[in-house]
Computed example of a mutant assay.
Amino acid sequence: MLAARGEPGEVGSSWLLNHRPFADNHLMEPGVKAGAPVLVIQPGGEPPLQVRGVALTGIGPVLAVRLESPWPGMPGDEVALIAGELGARIVARGRLLEARASVASIEITAPWKHVDRRRGQRFATELEAEVRSVLGQSRQKGTITDVSLTGMAVVTAAKPGGREVAIVTQAGAYSATLPCELVQASRSGEGVTLHLKFRELTAAQAAFVRNLVAAAQSRLLHERSEAS
């Protein structure tokens, strides 16, 4: 999901909507393959509206997407698009042409670009966690859904107060409290996804994160070997 601000190389939805369009023959490069996951975002809300879907076709300057739920807006809505799998995502700007039932046709108005919001590669995981708000001193349960050496995504019931949070989690016999900064919160079917980047970590905290990433990477490689 798009980050409003953060580390070098991050791209926010405001950047997408203000990016200067290119010539039409460049709009679909690198393009979207049929079946690729697509996230359609309408910036402006807090958090911004997001609807997930699957690309039906990405040939030419129009992208057709089958959405998980009907688009609540109107033709002409300016949207940001994220397509592809974690670690190989591309982003673009678009305009809603038509939405019938769960299928939306979106005109690509700025070129697709490769983007990775974190310097470190992200790996999917599923770990229980506690989200502690430093400002509001609130605590709530959450689930870590992906992790990298520089940050993580956590799904929780509600957005915590303030930008500084602490994520308490356990992996095997070890536990850690990881200081994080909230980059962006986005609505999802499960609740709210918190996109976090790590603040300054101690040596022990950094080692814990490296172990999380290594374990997630090992699971991914095992799954790929089993599938081949």
Rank of each mutant, 00 (worst) to 15 (best):
E107C: 08
E46F: 09
A129L: 00
V32F: 06
V62F: 10
R66K: 15
V51D: 01
A176T: 03
V62K: 14
R100C: 04
E85Q: 11
R187M: 12
D146R: 07
P8Q: 07
E128V: 03
G172S: 08
M28G: 01
S218Y: 11
G94W: 01
L86R: 11
K113I: 00
R52S: 10
P70V: 02
C180T: 05
V165C: 11
M74T: 12
G53H: 04
A36S: 15
E200W: 12
V209K: 10
G44I: 03
E7L: 08
G189R: 04
G9N: 08
P37M: 08
L63I: 02
L2S: 09
T177F: 05
I106K: 14
G6K: 02
G151N: 06
R210W: 02
T57I: 01
Q121S: 11
S228D: 11
A216W: 06
H222R: 12
Y174R: 12
L212N: 08
P43D: 05
R219C: 08
L196Y: 07
T202G: 14
R210A: 09
R224V: 03
A215Y: 06
L135T: 11
R100E: 11
F22D: 14
P160N: 08
A171I: 06
G35K: 02
V115F: 06
R118I: 00
E200P: 03
E98C: 07
L182R: 13
V131D: 15
L39H: 06
V65F: 10
R139Y: 13
P179K: 01
Y174I: 04
G151E: 09
R199N: 08
R199G: 05
A206T: 07
R219H: 12
Q184C: 05
V115R: 02
P179G: 00
H19V: 04
L67F: 08
A215E: 14
A129S: 10
N211G: 08
E10L: 03
W112Y: 08
L27C: 05
R100L: 09
S14C: 05
L96V: 09
Q217T: 00
S138A: 14
A92G: 05
A129N: 03
W15E: 13
R118W: 07
M74D: 11
R117C: 02
L196C: 06
F208Q: 07
A124S: 14
P61M: 09
L182M: 10
A92P: 00
H195E: 12
I106D: 12
V147M: 13
P75A: 06
V154W: 09
A92Q: 03
V65Y: 13
L86I: 04
S218L: 12
P70N: 12
P160H: 06
H222P: 00
A129C: 11
R132E: 15
N211P: 03
V165F: 10
H114T: 02
P47V: 01
P21Q: 09
I59M: 15
I82S: 15
G45C: 05
V103S: 13
A216Y: 07
A207Y: 04
A110Y: 02
V38H: 14
F198Q: 06
H26E: 13
F22S: 15
A227R: 14
L67H: 10
G94P: 00
R20C: 06
Q217I: 00
A80K: 00
E200L: 08
A99N: 14
A104Y: 04
V165M: 08
C180L: 08
G6M: 02
A124D: 15
G161Y: 12
